[in-house]
Design a protein around this nucleic acid. Structure first.
Length: 700
DNA sequence: AGGGTCTGTCATCAC
DNA sequence: CCGTGATGACAGACC
């Protein structure tokens, strides 16, 4: 019994830590609000991995020691170490060190063990909180154990004499007897703040057996109360409710000065529980509680430490589909809660049926994880994920941030083609001339005239800057090519329709105003006669116009407003052929500009789309980063919960001091905030709803 | 010589 | 109905 007490006490400590961790989770909830599952849901789920042996293995692995699993002393030692380490690791965990120390002392001081040697299958760890029945009388799943105990029974005090009674109560009780060690009291006080009750009660069948058949339900109840109020005296075994046969064990100490932090955490936890219960309560299965089924996105609270705490056993997290036996149970239980993988090592040996036949509800976490995480079963994958989030994602974002890839002209305003055009034209010619033949509205994009002006001065009346369009394109493709502007002259396209004002209003129609080709080209053709050169490089329409003796420049034909154009035609008496030619020239000229504008618009559209894609990629990267952070945080929390769950579970002992087989039992969290150890055959929903009533009924 | 790009032109549609 | 802009398609010039 001594070691029963020890284990149980340690269990209390573990559980306290667990609750404290939940306190941390409170913060997390602020951002993951609904996404985080209720504690009970987290704890839900059978894990055959939580066998004592595995526990030791885990510990040994963690500690790096090969200690015989059965060594109680070593257990103590390592447990202490482990707990300390665990606490230290819980950076954000605001667990006063003094409290921890106290626990440890308490642990060491283990002396007496209340032996509820009764055959009572139930072990009740009611927190002594008797203070106020926050949950109300019904709150009492704990009541089970406390069967006959008074309302205040949170029988921390009332150690169930039942056989199953393990001893925290006994401890407390013993402590009191032993002289009420101050430390012990303090410990009890602290512990009492986390009302813990372990109740084993018989099922309807009443066949309480050590085999823990489904007929009976062993309940580990943890009731939480703001202020523990338990008189040491109450710890007497006599107060154990006979009906429940459960041993009510509860830390009992007057709540002298509950640590403020602790209390605060406690309140937070309660708040969460309430909210969670409310949320989950709305759904049938909430009792079973799938992990974080509530949906809702909230900003991530980075309060969760992101440092990676890896557990060896986590490599096989998230088994998607349990194939058989244990794994099935595990999955069934935790699968829905997302904690399956964490809490349930694959090597679980569970013969029980689906304890947690809890309905699988939509789980925000699942959604979050399944996408990119659930399929990643190993920590290695996690590492890869992290690697991505930290390095690759950053790199990607950097890449996206930089324009090197697309070399888009940042000066371009996607929304304003004109601006882009301006940049192009200005880059092309640096011409200050902005005059355009816009009266007809066809020159929206035809700032080409600017360039044309420059060329006109050089004798290239064609007026069109050959490189204009190309320049824009080049700038789009690679801004660096702006430096190669002079080279653009090499492109000998005919742009004669974009005429400068000077040439457009030239009064000398005969003059070959439009050379049409690049000055460069002209230079290359110095040997040719001027006329030939002009003819050769003139546009077809110009040549036609010349051949037809059209008395005015094509620029005029093309760019004059329709009224002036008609006046011009009227002023000059032209033949039928001439008129047709003039009209064709005008039509083609306008169409040419329209085509240019059209192409520019296309280009702008493409640029805008590119920019949009860029922005979207950037957003995607950012969101991906955030997602990875979420996943990391969640996984870390799961790992912590897993280890805590495992430790708590393995510390539990039945009335005979035997550990509960993980294959048959699991810790589950009920809606009222109590933690129960349930046979896997019992559905959580069933368990969470009825326990209180059952207990009451049984009491009576 | 072949392919890509740019540009002009035509046909067509819409306003 | 005409003038004009927009645009797809085509062809020629150029690289």
């Amino acid at each position: 019994m001594l070691y029963l007490k020890k284990y149980f006490t340690e269990g209390l400590i573990q559980f306290t830590i667990l609750l404290s961790l939940l306190g941390v989770r409170v913060d997390v909830d602020t951002y993951l609000s609904n996404q985080l599952p209720p504690l009970r849901e987290i704890i839900l789920g059978p894990s055959s991995a939580y066998t004592q042996t595995q526990f030791h293995n885990l510990r040994n692995n963690l500690d790096g020691y090969g200690i015989h699993p059965k060594s109680v002393d070593l257990d103590q030692f390592f447990t202490t170490r482990r707990l300390l380490n665990r606490v230290r690791q819980l950076d954000r965990l605001s667990v006063p060190s003094t409290e921890l120390n106290t626990w440890l002392v308490h642990r060491d001081s283990e002396t007496a063990v209340s032996t509820g040697s009764q055959s009572s299958p139930s072990i009740t760890l009611d927190n002594g909180g008797g203070l106020e029945d926050v949950n109300g009388p019904d709150a009492a799943p704990a009541m089970r154990g406390g069967g006959g105990a008074p309302e205040s029974t949170y029988n921390l005090n009332a150690p169930d004499t039942g056989p199953g009674a393990v001893a925290p109560e006994g401890n407390q009780e013993q402590g009191g007897r032993d002289g009420n060690d101050d430390l012990t009291k303090e410990v009890l006080q602290l512990v009492s703040s986390f009302a813990v009750g372990n109740t084993c009660e018989r099922g309807e069948g009443g066949t309480h057996t050590h085999t823990h058949t489904h007929t009976h339900t062993t309940t580990f109840t943890c009731c939480v109360f703001p202020a523990p109020v338990v008189a040491p005296e109450t710890a007497s075994n006599e107060e154990v409710p006979s009906t429940s046969q459960g041993l009510a064990l509860a830390p009992q100490l007057p709540p002298e000065e509950p640590p403020l932090d602790l209390e605060q955490q406690w309140q937070d936890i309660m708040a969460i529980m309430d909210s969670d219960s409310g949320t989950s309560g709305s759904t049938e299965s909430n009792a079973a509680g799938s992990f974080g089924r509530s949906s809702g996105s909230t900003p991530v609270n980075q309060d969760v430490s992101l440092h990676q705490a890896s557990l060896p056993g986590c490599s096989q997290d998230f088994p998607q589909v349990p194939s058989s036996g244990n794994s099935s149970n595990v999955n069934a239980t935790f699968g829905a809660t997302n904690l399956t993988g964490i809490f349930l090592p694959p090597h679980v040996n569970s013969s029980s049926t689906n304890v947690t036949s809890t309905p699988i509800l939509p789980d925000p976490f699942s959604n979050l994880l399944e996408e990119s995480m659930l399929d990643e079963i190993s920590l290695l994958d996690l590492a890869m994920e992290e690697g991505f989030s930290q390095a690759q994602a950053s790199q990607l974002e950097d890449e996206l941030d930089s324009d090197s890839g697309l070399s888009l002209d940042s000066s371009r305003s996607p929304a304003s083609p004109s601006s882009s055009e301006t940049s192009c034209s200005s880059a092309a010619s640096s011409s200050s001339t902005s005059a355009t033949f816009s009266e007809e509205g066809a020159v929206g994009y035809s700032t080409d005239s600017e360039a044309a002006t420059v060329e006109a001065e050089e004798g290239a009346v064609g007026g069109y800057q050959p490189g204009y369009s190309k320049l824009c394109r080049m700038s789009y493709q690679d801004p660096s090519q702006f430096h190669g502007l002079p080279q653009l002259g090499g492109v000998g396209h005919n742009h004669t329709y974009n005429l400068p004002l000077s040439s457009a209003f030239a009064e000398q129609p005969e003059l070959p105003v439009s050379v049409g080709k690049k000055s460069v080209r002209d230079k290359h053709s110095k040997l040719q006669p001027a006329q030939d050169l002009l003819d050769k490089h003139a546009s077809r329409d110009e040549r036609r116009a010349r051949s037809m003796k059209i008395p005015f420049a094509n620029e005029k034909i093309i760019n004059l407003p329709v009224e002036e154009f008609n006046e011009l035609l009227a002023k000059h008496h032209l033949s039928e052929g001439q008129l047709a030619l003039v009209r064709d020239i005008r039509r083609r000229g306008k169409n040419k500009m329209a085509a240019q504008n059209c192409r520019k618009r296309k280009l702008d559209t493409i640029i805008n789309l590119e920019q949009g894609v860029q922005d979207l990629r950037r957003d995607k990267t950012r969101l991906l980063k955030e997602k990875m952070e979420f996943i990391r945080s969640i996984r870390q929390m799961k790992q912590k919960m897993q280890s805590l769950y495992q430790e708590v579970f393995t510390q539990l002992r039945d009335e005979e001091g035997r550990p509960y087989p993980p294959s048959e039992y699991s810790l589950q969290y009920s809606a009222d905030g109590s933690v129960l150890i349930m046979p896997r055959g019992v559905t959580t929903a069933e368990q969470s709803r009825k326990p209180e009533k059952k207990q009451k009924d049984k009491k009576k």
